[in-house]
């Protein structure tokens, strides 16, 4: 506190502060000084209180648990060092299966999602009647919860009476058991994610497209560049920071994928994500270890590795984003 008091509040001319002090109705100059120094901290304090209790403390607790063999089934807890991490990284095929699934579904949902969003945004960027209607219509899926999405699409992808299989039947394709086949299940779950998020991302791209100067397009058009050409050589490069932004958002969401694959199957053992773990994600595996195997120490290790994965993928994205914006 003392160091703070010797520093004049930056940005405020000292003479002005004095004037302020003089005209404070309360007539307590020290109160004003206190107000200037303390208020910013008071204003940001609520977040840090909540974050400390419900964000930071659980993380450190998780780190501690991950170093033990804690389990509700053990009467005692012993310290096991890094054993959990060693086992997880070197001797746990099911974990790596979950990592593979998570990244697979992440790619399978994100790539078409962003491409479709780009195409939709490009279309919306034209001069069309009913702009607002189209925007509202494509954004509407975001009002549904992931639970609702999972329920609706699980029925669309039902094996026996599902809409998807009916459509396939119309074009003469045999029905698919969407939960049995790895790729089919990835596809089904990816469409759930995409349905909810394509419109949202399209709006973000649309906003970015609208801030691109029209003159660039006009100049290109005068040079005889086709629309397709303009799209790839003007729109896409200008959109790169926005694309990176949406990528980061999709990364955080995609690597935590949980509700859709969980509710894709019903009944006991839904956490195992299919008979051979075809669509078990890391979060599902985490809960399986925690809640059906009761290896809490090990679950702590899984949680931390999941976090490290998200952090490092996001960090790579962030570096890319910085690189690109500084290139400009």
């Amino acid at each position: 506190m003392s160091s703070l008091e010797t520093t004049a509040p930056p940005g405020l001319d000292p003479s002005r502060s004095r004037r302020t002090a003089r005209r404070t109705p309360s007539g307590f100059p020290w109160l004003t000084r206190l107000d200037l120094r303390l208020s910013p901290y008071l204003f940001v304090l609520p977040f840090f209180v909540i974050f400390a209790i419900f964000g930071v403390y659980p993380i450190f607790y998780t780190v501690w648990i991950a170093l033990t063999d804690r389990s509700p089934l053990n009467a005692t807890i012993s310290f096991v060092g890094l054993d959990n991490f060693v086992e997880l990284l070197t001797n746990d095929p099911q974990f790596w299966n979950a990592v593979w699934n998570t990244f697979g579904m992440f790619v399978l949902s994100t790539v078409p999602q962003l491409l479709l969003a780009l195409m939709l945004a490009n279309a919306l960027n034209r001069r069309i009647r009913g702009q607002m209607f189209f925007r509202l219509a494509i954004a509407m899926p975001i009002i549904t919860s992931t639970a609702v999405v999972a329920l609706i699409f699980s029925m669309i992808y039902a094996r026996d009476f599902g809409l998807a299989n009916w459509l396939l039947d119309l074009v003469g394709v045999d029905p698919i058991d969407w939960r049995a086949n790895r790729f089919a299940s990835w596809f089904a779950i990816s469409t759930m994610v995409d349905w909810r998020w394509v419109g949202y991302n399209a709006l973000i791209y649309l906003a970015a497209m609208q801030s691109i100067s029209k003159d660039m397009y006009e100049a290109a058009a005068l040079d005889g560049a086709s629309r397709r050409r303009q799209f790839w050589s003007i729109t896409i490069p200008q959109l790169r920071p926005t694309i990176i932004f949406t990528l980061i958002i999709s990364t955080i969401g995609g690597l935590q994928l949980f509700t859709e694959p969980l509710m894709f199957t019903s009944g006991s053992g839904a956490l195992s994500g299919g008979s051979e773990g075809q669509f078990q994600t890391i979060t599902m595996y985490l809960l399986e270890v925690m809640n059906t195997r009761f290896r809490w120490g090990y679950a702590g290790a899984v949680a931390l590795v999941l976090f490290l994965l998200i952090a490092s993928v996001s960090f790579v994205n962030y570096l890319l984003a910085r690189r690109i914006s500084s290139d400009k």
Partner: peptide, 14 residues
């Protein structure tokens, strides 16, 4: 960036 899954167990105990 912190997923709630990370601290789900300690949070529950809390």
């Amino acid at each position: 960036m912190i997923p709630i899954q990370l601290g789900v167990l300690p949070l529950y105990i809390l």
